[in-house]
Each structure stands twice: as structure tokens, then as C-alpha cells.
């Protein structure tokens, strides 16, 4: 247990020293929330924006930090090194996943505080249901990151796949540019991205509207199951 704790803390420190996860996962969403907060005219707009921006943290840890770190640990033989010690390298993987979850939740919470105290957002939905939905979206997006880590042959390939996915989700899913403003062609493309469905689910829960996002929820659960199964199947330690 002590090893796990040390590994978990080390992942935080490493990420803080390297900064990019904090920039994309924490500072960027806070900045966007501030800008969008000024642009929002109604509480409904503010809540919709919050629910979208709250996902930036989980996207950045899920499709950037997770696959990049795991690829790098494999390529630098860090995982192999733990194979010849009394602990399993699985501990390092789990520690990293926990770090990702922690940063995601921290980011969501910070954005919530900014919206609430900076712009007087009143949250009409159920906080409990919103949190459960958030966890589903978070795990689902991380399972995609895990799949990239498992199937990508090299760190460089991972970086390319991660960036492609990250920036398309950032721009098309409604996390930064409101979905309704996109031209219809891009809207159709955006429907293919899991985050679009995640944000739809979260916005519904945040607004407290009657639950209608059955297809989005189902899709996220299917993605989680398939991606996790495939990554367990294809994961290589070296």
C-alpha cells in the first residue's frame, strides 16, 4: 500500500513538473470558463457551458496523459523493471490512472467553483446524478486512452493519435465551441465522438431536465466495455 501511495504521489509530482497536463487539464478549462462566463447571458447558458467545460480535464488526462505516460513507461522499460521486483507493474498503471481521475475531478470541481462564485451560477440539476454521469464519462474517455496505449506501437504514434483525438474533441464536442454553433457537417462528424454524447448527458443532468439521453448513455457504456476489453487483450508490457 505504501508503494502504491508513493507511486501515486510521484505521478502527481511528475505531471506537475512537466506542466502540460496541468495547463490543458486545469488552467485551460478555468480560462475558458471565465471567458464563457462573461459571454453567458442566462443561468441556463452558464450551466450548459459549465457542464461542457467540466469535461476538459477528463479529456486531457484521458486521451493525452494516460496513453502518453503508459507508452513512455513501456518504451523506457519502466514497466519491465517493475516486473523483476516484488511488486507488479500493474500498480504503476493503476497509480497513474488514479492520478488521472484525481486531476479530472479536481478540474471539474475548480470549474464548478469558478462558475458558481465568479458568475453566480445556480445549479438546477441533481448534484448526485451529475457526479455519477461525470464518473461514467470520465471512465469511458479513459478507456479510450487505455486502448490507444495498448495498441500504439511507439510513443510517437501515441502522441499523434492522442493529439488528433484531443483536439477534435476539444473543438467539435462542444467543450469549447458550443455544439449548436457548428455547421451541420461538423455536427454530424461530432456525433461520432464519444465526448459529444458525454457532454449531452452531463448537460441534461446539470439542467435537471427529464432524462432522455438513453442512446448517449448506452454508447458510453458500450465504449467503456469494448475499449477496456480490447486494451486488456492487447496490452503489452514491452
Amino acid at each position: 500500500m505504501r508503494t502504491f501511495w508513493l507511486l501515486y504521489v510521484a505521478e502527481f509530482k511528475l505531471s506537475f513538473r512537466e506542466m502540460s497536463s496541468f495547463i490543458f487539464g486545469l488552467f485551460l478549462p478555468v480560462g475558458i470558463m471565465v471567458i464563457m462566463g462573461y459571454l453567458s447571458t442566462t443561468n441556463e447558458e452558464l450551466v450548459t457551458t459549465f457542464a461542457a467545460v467540466a469535461t476538459l480535464g477528463l479529456v486531457s488526462t484521458g486521451v493525452m496523459s494516460l496513453p502518453l505516460s503508459l507508452s513512455s513507461y513501456r518504451e523506457k522499460k519502466v514497466l519491465k523493471r517493475y516486473k523483476v521486483t516484488p511488486i507488479s507493474p500493474v500498480q504503476l498503471l493503476v497509480a497513474h490512472v488514479f492520478y488521472c481521475f484525481s486531476l479530472s475531478i479536481l478540474s471539474m470541481f475548480t470549474v464548478f467553483l469558478v462558475a458558481t462564485f465568479g458568475f453566480n451560477m445556480i445549479f438546477p440539476g441533481s448534484i448526485g446524478l451529475f457526479l455519477i454521469s461525470y464518473l461514467i464519462v470520465m471512465i469511458s474517455i479513459h478507456s479510450i486512452g487505455m486502448l490507444i496505449a495498448s495498441t500504439s506501437p511507439r510513443e510517437k504514434t501515441t502522441a499523434a493519435m492522442s493529439s488528433l483525438l484531443f483536439f477534435s474533441m476539444l473543438i467539435l464536442s462542444g467543450a469549447t465551441i458550443p455544439f449548436d454553433l457548428l455547421p451541420s457537417v461538423l455536427q454530424s462528424i461530432a456525433q461520432l465522438l464519444p465526448l459529444t454524447h458525454g457532454i449531452e448527458l452531463l448537460q441534461g443532468q446539470a439542467l435537471g431536465s427529464p432524462f432522455t439521453s438513453y442512446s448517449s448513455l448506452l454508447l458510453l457504456l458500450v465504449i467503456t466495455t469494448v475499449a477496456t476489453t480490447l486494451s486488456l487483450r492487447f496490452f503489452r508490457w514491452e
Binding site: R2, T3, L6, L7, A10, E11, K13, L14, R17, E18, S72, Y73, K76, K77, V78, K80, R81, V84, T85, P86, I87
Partner: peptide, 25 residues
């Protein structure tokens, strides 16, 4: 065991890797 490449997470300090490794045994 020491493999050919020194396999550590980039950016750890000497103290940190020592503490982690120490906790393994």
C-alpha cells in the same frame, strides 16, 4: 536486476526513486 537501460520515470529525483524502490522490499 539492472537492465541495459536505466528505466525510470523521467523527472523523478534520486530521493523519490529511492523511497519508491525502498518500499518494494
Amino acid at each position: 536486476v539492472q537492465f541495459q537501460e536505466s528505466a525510470f520515470q523521467n523527472g523523478l529525483t534520486v530521493k523519490e526513486i529511492c523511497e519508491i524502490t525502498h518500499s518494494l522490499y
